[in-house]
Design a binder for these strands. Structure first.
Lengths: 204, 204, 204, 204
DNA sequence: TTCTAATCGAGACGGTACGTCCCGTCTTGCC
DNA sequence: GGCAAGACGGGACGTACCGTCTCGATTAGAA
């Protein structure tokens, strides 16, 4: 950031994109390094080679910055295609979640995010308004297709299914921080299908 | 703190219980007031009418203080008795976990602890050395009894079962922060038993 | 602040003169109030209505602050002009030293500086690099002129002369803290000239 | 200090001499190490292997402790015998002063002491009431003997002589902290005798 | 001999100050 | 007007000592 020629936009008085990009990159690197709570705007600016004012010009607070950058950052629930069977859909979802939660940055950031959400309504709203909505929509679609195929009863508790699908991987990878042995996803797939059958039976 | 009669100091150069109590009370009052992240030890000491050193003499950090006070305040994995059947044991465990995770304070602090564990090896060791060991022992005993009764095959992946048991409640109550509708535990029980059956079948 | 003249702020992010002035004033007021040893930077900042960092940005320590402020406040070895005779030069030097060491502030701070020099190499270097060098240069010039005039032999021990010139006044005014009676400088002048003659005779 | 059997004085409830001795020793070692200003009672007690209260039981403050211990410590002006001539007396005095001021502990402690004296009337009184009185008495006796022998005029300014005698050595050894080359005392002797002659001539 | 009273090492107590870091705001001169 | 740089008043950090106090144990002299 420091020495580069600024091949800057048209008029002045416009936030420069490369500065924003440098801040964004620095922000995630700092987050991964020290965690959300210990993350200081000063350090982000320093690492980005940017004045503090450049940060404050863009976002009023650390939280606002986090919210916006996360949404833009591509921490997204993978798309789950219709594979034609519940079993295939579940497998696809588990694999997508696994690919996401396996990333070290994600494993460090998610607990911070969930911690802060407990405390900050605006952040919670920002997150829930996008990530969770997306996740929920995807999960509901999966369940609806299964009901349509007759693989699940229409009476099934969709919320509980939505809790089940990410829960075990999140616990394992994010909360305990442990790795997974070979074949883990296969076992998890069997476990999940059994759980869905158990749930279906209870509501049948 | 200054003028109070010091009833039963007991030992020499020993941390005084009434000071500890004052700090503890102030800690939770401050937590409620500003949240964990913004909680300053200075403010806790001030509110307790105590020198900062009196706090640092007891705990090396905010997180250590939080961990210990929470443990003392009753955040414990409930004991799971041998109910005579896998189904009963699972139900007891789920109910214990539910009682724990339902408490607002626990729902606020657990993500903080898990976040910080990702970063602080000493804290991770401290937590794992107590809570997790306890939890794991309890889960393993449950599985072993089930194997002994013939309810689960000896080949079952114990680690995965240990992931399963707390995962859904943790996700629901702690991560999403949502409440549970009536009958949630019943459904969760059915779900969990189905999951165990699915897992058993896969390994049979 | 240290070496460059700071006339007319000139650049951005430059220490502001009015803040420096406020700190300086507060420093001397605090010194007068509680003495050097008990002087706390916190109190200086408080009294100046300034953040502590504003003080530390200017000086790394209480002693550095004291040294610089004193130098600026006019504690300088007086210039000794060539009066045309050894006698006149000595008299000028004694009078310069007297004017300096008579000031109460100087009498309070000099022993502190000398004490601390015994312990702090950096401070010693700083002081020696300015005050002592200046003093030595002046003394050597005086002696060299006297040798050129034939008033002192070329074999004279210059170091010892340099010890002699300030020694008695320093002892009297700074170490014992006593005042001087009228005519003291006249007697001291006679004493010093006698000493130089004695020294010259010993080396003749 | 810790394990020794206490073969203590007469009655109980009496300050124990070996504790006092341990504190005294620790006090001087700490003084030499960090200087008077930075000397903490806590460190003295720690180094002496003694509780803080044992120190406070003996002296109400650091200053009181310093005053008393210094007086007892043997930092004394050496006795100057009547050698039969002014020259011999001066030489004896200079040698005594040199022996004293050459000691590293003394070179470190004296400037601190003089600094504190400037600020603390009680300390100044304690020191002046003993050391200085003693020194003055010795110097006056020396001058009186010289007057009696006809070596100095009766009109000589005794105070100025008293300033002269210690001044150069103090400046050289204590203030500048430099060492002395071989023959320094011889030159200093010549210098001092010359000074006395010059002073005598002025008052003749 | 038993009691009593003050000493001992240890260290907790409420405080103050240390020197550092970061907060969010503001200012300066360059582009 | 955005930019890098960084000073500003403020506040918390975690540490070191302050001088006081309390503890249980030791230790003799007085009862």
């Amino acid at each position: 950031m420091n020495e580069k020629a600024r091949r800057v936009p048209a008029g002045a008085a416009v936030l420069q994109e490369d500065v924003t990009a440098a801040i964004t990159a620095a922000f995630f690197r700092e987050w991964a390094r020290v965690g959300y709570a210990a993350l200081s705007i000063e350090a982000v600016a320093r690492r980005a080679g940017v004045g503090k004012a450049a940060v404050y010009r863009r976002w009023p607070s650390k939280l606002a910055m986090a919210s916006e950058l996360l949404l833009k950052s591509g921490i997204r629930v993978a798309q789950v295609p219709d594979t034609g069977s519940l079993e295939g859909d579940v497998r696809a979802l588990l694999e997508g979640a696994y690919r996401l939660l396996r990333r070290p940055l994600v494993r460090r950031i998610l607990p911070d995010l969930h911690s802060e959400m407990r405390r900050s309504a605006p952040l919670a709203r920002a997150i829930r308004g996008t990530l969770q909505v997306e996740r929920r929509a995807m999960g509901e679609a999966l369940v609806r297709r299964a009901i349509a195929r007759g693989e699940l009863p229409a009476t099934i508790d969709v919320d509980l299914v939505l809790d089940l699908l990410p829960a075990v991987l999140y616990w394992r990878l994010v909360v305990t921080g442990m790795e997974t042995p070979p074949g883990y996803l296969d076992d998890l797939q069997a476990l999940t299908m059994g759980a869905l059958r158990g749930l279906a039976a209870a509501r049948a």
